[in-house]
C-alpha cells in the first residue's frame, strides 16, 4: 500500500495564506514515519487532510493510485486511515472495551466484537479489569493505548498519530512507541507520527520535515 500526496494545497479560509503549500510525498506500508517541524508549520493540518477530515483545495491524495475523493468518506475513515490524537479523543463515557467494540462495529468486523476488543486491549497492555473501566478512570498513557487499540481495530493500513506522546511522560512515551513499532511489524501498517520530539522521531524509520507548508525528507532520516 502506498499513500501519495501530490502538490497538495490547503488553507482554512480563502483570505488566509496556504497552510499546506504544495505538499508532496509518499508513505508506504510497514514503515514508521515521523513528521516534524516548528509549531504552526502545518503538521496537524497535514494529518487532518490525509485523514480526510477536510478536503485539499488543490492537488491529490491517493492510495495505491486511487484518488481518495473517489472513496466514500466514511469508508475511508473507517477502513483506510485511522487517527490517533494527542488528547486521545476517546468516547469518555464509554468503557475501554466499549470504545473498541464501537470501532469494530463501525468498520464492519464480522467476528465476536467483544472477544476481539479484549485481544486488542491486551495487546496494548490494558488488563481485563481496566478494560471494563470508563476511560476517564484510566491514566493518560492507558487512554492513549486504548486509542491505539481503537486504531488497530479498524484494520486500517494507515495510522495517523498527532503528537501521540505529547501529553505523556517519557516512560509512557516509550511504551507507546514500542507499541507502534510492534503494530507496524505485526500488521504491516504505515504509521505516520507528528511530533516535536527529536527522541520520538529518532525511533521512527523515516523522518520528514514540514517547513513553510512543504514536506521534505529530513537529513536525520534513518
Amino acid at each position: 500500500m502506498k499513500l501519495t500526496l501530490n502538490d497538495v494545497y490547503y488553507r482554512y479560509k480563502s483570505n488566509l495564506p496556504y497552510v499546506l503549500n504544495g505538499v508532496s510525498g509518499e508513505f508506504e506500508s510497514g514503515n514508521l514515519y515521523a513528521v516534524t517541524g516548528e509549531s504552526g508549520c502545518g503538521k496537524t493540518t497535514l494529518m487532518s487532510i490525509i485523514g480526510n477530515l477536510d478536503r485539499p483545495e488543490k492537488g491529490t491524495i491517493s492510495i495505491d493510485g486511487a484518488d481518495i475523493k473517489t472513496i466514500n468518506e466514511d469508508t475511508y475513515r473507517s477502513k483506510y486511515v485511522a487517527m490517533i490524537f494527542q488528547s486521545y479523543n476517546l468516547l469518555y463515557n464509554y468503557t475501554a472495551v466499549d470504545n473498541i467494540i464501537l470501532m469494530l462495529n463501525i468498520s464492519g468486523y464480522k467476528g465476536d466484537c467483544k472477544e476481539r476488543a479484549g485481544e486488542l486491549l491486551n495487546e496494548v497492555g490494558i488488563t481485563p479489569e481496566k478494560q471494563r473501566r470508563v476511560v476517564t478512570e484510566l491514566s493518560g498513557g492507558e487512554q492513549q493505548r486504548v486509542a491505539i487499540a481503537r486504531a488497530v481495530a479498524s484494520e486500517s493500513k494507515i495510522i495517523l498519530a498527532d503528537e501521540p506522546t505529547g501529553s505523556l511522560d517519557s516512560k509512557n512515551s516509550e511504551i507507546i512507541m514500542e507499541i507502534f513499532s510492534e503494530i507496524r511489524g505485526r500488521y504491516n501498517t504505515c504509521i505516520i507520527i507528528v511530533t516535536h520530539s527529536a527522541e520520538i522521531a529518532s525511533k521512527c524509520d523515516k523522518v520528514m520535515r514540514m517547513s513553510e507548508g512543504k514536506l521534505s525528507y529530513s537529513e536525520t532520516c534513518k
Binding site: 485523514g51 477530515l53 466514511d74 469508508t75 475511508y76 475513515r77 473507517s78 477502513k79 485511522a82 487517527m83 479523543n89 476517546l90 468516547l91 464501537l102 470501532m103 463501525i106 468498520s107 481503537r150 479498524s154
Partner: peptide
C-alpha cells in the same frame, strides 16, 4: 465532541 469523534472514525 462525541459526534466529532464518531465522525472521525468513520461513523456514517
Amino acid at each position: 465532541y462525541e459526534i466529532a469523534v464518531l465522525r472521525s472514525v468513520g461513523m456514517p
